[in-house]
Amino acid sequence: MSAGAVLDIRGLGVDFLTPRGRVHALRDVSLQVPRGSVVGVVGESGSGKSTLILAALRLLPANALILGGEVVLDGEDVLRMSPAALRDLRGRKATMVFQDPSTSLNPVLTIGRQMIDIQYRDRVPTARKRDRAATMLRKVGIPDPATRLDNYPHEFSGGMRQRIAIAMALLCNPDLLIADEPTTALDVTMEAQIIHLLRQLKSEFHGSILFVSHNLGLIAELCDRVVILYAGAVAEEGSVHDLFHRPRHPYTQALLECDPARLAKVSRELPTIPGDVPDLLAAPVGCAFAPRCPKVFERCRREAPRLVADGDGHGAACHLVPAIASSRVGPRPSTGSGRGPPVEPVET
């Protein structure tokens, strides 16, 4: 495994069993989160970004079937862990900040109680734990933390609740913080403050962040590397500069063009990506983006492109991208094939 990665997902495939049939939600997805960096995952609805982060902590619903691949967190494969080991991992090595802060906190317990409870592994007096909680609240910018610990979640505004959720996530000093669209429920001025806070905390807690969003502005603002998901597969990945300034995949290019914040000139006619995201009930033949791609040619409909990365780790799964280097992104084990070894379907 690559020594520098906190999270190393390789060749992950996930299907959902639904009454309509099997939905191929993730197909051969690989992603690395290097230590100390912020990796952004961008994708439209249905691209598999939620499935990906749930799989990272093995929180997938019961109808999910893991087809193969591995999710290595701090050197251990999450997909093959015992329930006890999993419990030890969640909330300590890796924590998650969810989209909606009003549903991720327990409404009938004070936030102090919740922040003390989350430290259940530490054998220190409760007073110490409370102090720690107060310190952490101060760090995330909650005024008068010692008193506010006795308040219930409904006594805080949405932005404050999200700050509390972040404080709770960082309380156990995790190696990896997963943030799933942490600002969608917030106003822009609060969003700017939360992003600023995440940037500050990142330099302070030395951890890594996996940041999931569909807001390209936030990704540009916060992330070091970016992974673009389309229809359950990685379309492109690279440094944030490469992706925003030298996008290679036609989907990335179209997505960037669509963002109204990027249009310098005022225009009544906004660019769009014609067509729909493919229905993943049938695994796409050829390139998943082919039906919507302006540059499509015959080979795209026949053969799925493989992700080819250059020395900087910038790669796109597109037949038009010249094969600069034949290696895939990230160092791979010498014995490794394109997919990880098959695993038994995991019950979650």
């Binding site: 505004s157 932005g159 404050m160 106003d187 822009v188 001025t189 609060m190 969003e191 700017a192 403050q193 992003i195 600023h196 807001n215 390209l216 502005g217 936030l218 990704i219 540009a220 603002e221 992330c223 944030v240 500069h241 925003f244 300034h245 960037l256 963002d259 914040a261 990027r262």
Partner: peptide
């Protein structure tokens, strides 16, 4: 002015160093 400044720009070279509007409504 603050609202406009709070809008993130989809350009990693134009990251904002600080937040103009603090606090909340």
């Amino acid at each position: 002015h603050g609202l406009l400044a709070a809008q993130p720009l989809p350009d990693p070279d134009r990251r904002r160093a600080n937040v103009e509007l603090q606090g909340e409504v």
